[in-house]
């Protein structure tokens, strides 16, 4: 029997996927493909190239741009550090295994509420979320619940609320997250109706 070990994402989710016929941890499968690291490398390379090009074109302007970049980053760093801390706590106490239990648990309205609340407060990357959702679907969870979880996960950000409020103001943050929460139910019902048939 294959046992789930702590994978590259540092979670013991217990979700098994198959790659080339061999069992592999769901998160490992996507991390092994190097998708996220590649994105970062490309982003850094592009930024370095752009800065170099700018420097050759106009030195004074580039220095000004770097100063602005530094000032904006330092200015918003307190809010980002809070998001960092909150996400760290969330990942620890709301593990994929636990998320799975909440979403897979109930059918009906309580189950929908649980899926939406868990989706709203979690902030996990797609390469962990989608395999998790797929394994739940395979085990017979309703597509409505899964769609609700995926939708709230992506659109509603409770943990990033302090950051969003700082940038956009309180009213926008409340309106956007509130509407996104309600809209996620619409998405879920439609997806459930289309996939469930």
């Amino acid at each position: 029997m294959w046992a789930c070990g702590p994978c590259a994402a540092g979670v013991r989710c217990g979700i098994v996927l198959y790659m080339d016929g061999k069992p592999i941890c769901a998160a490992d499968r996507y991390i092994l493909r190097g998708d996220t690291r590649l994105t970062t490398a490309i982003l850094y390379l592009l930024a370095a190239a752009a800065t170099a090009a700018s420097y050759f074109a106009d030195r004074a302007r580039t220095v000004q741009a770097l100063r602005k970049a530094k000032a904006s980053l330092l200015n918003i760093l307190p809010e980002f550090s809070v998001v960092l801390g909150l996400v760290g706590i969330m990942l620890t106490f709301l593990s994929p295994a636990l998320i799975q239990r909440y979403i897979g648990a109930g059918s009906g309205v309580p189950g929908l509420l649980a899926a939406s609340v868990v989706g709203s407060i979690t902030l996990i990357p797609g390469f962990v979320a989608f395999p998790l959702a797929a394994s739940l679907l395979a085990r017979g969870a309703g597509p409505t619940h899964i769609a609700l979880f995926v939708s709230t996960l992506m659109m509603v950000g409770v943990l990033t609320f302090p950051l969003e409020r700082r940038y956009f103001g309180r009213r926008e943050a409340i309106l956007r997250n509130g509407l996104a929460y309600v809209f996620s139910f619409v998405v879920a019902l439609i997806v459930g109706a289309v996939v469930g048939r």
């Binding site: 996220t36 800065t51 700018s54 302007r61 970049a69 980053l73 990357p125």
Partner: peptide
């Protein structure tokens, strides 16, 4: 690590965008 992978280049781009 994830934030460090994203934020510095993004802010760098925005700084350049601002002046250019």
């Amino acid at each position: 690590a994830q934030m460090l992978g994203l934020l510095p280049p993004v802010f760098l781009f925005l700084g350049l965008l601002d002046v250019w």
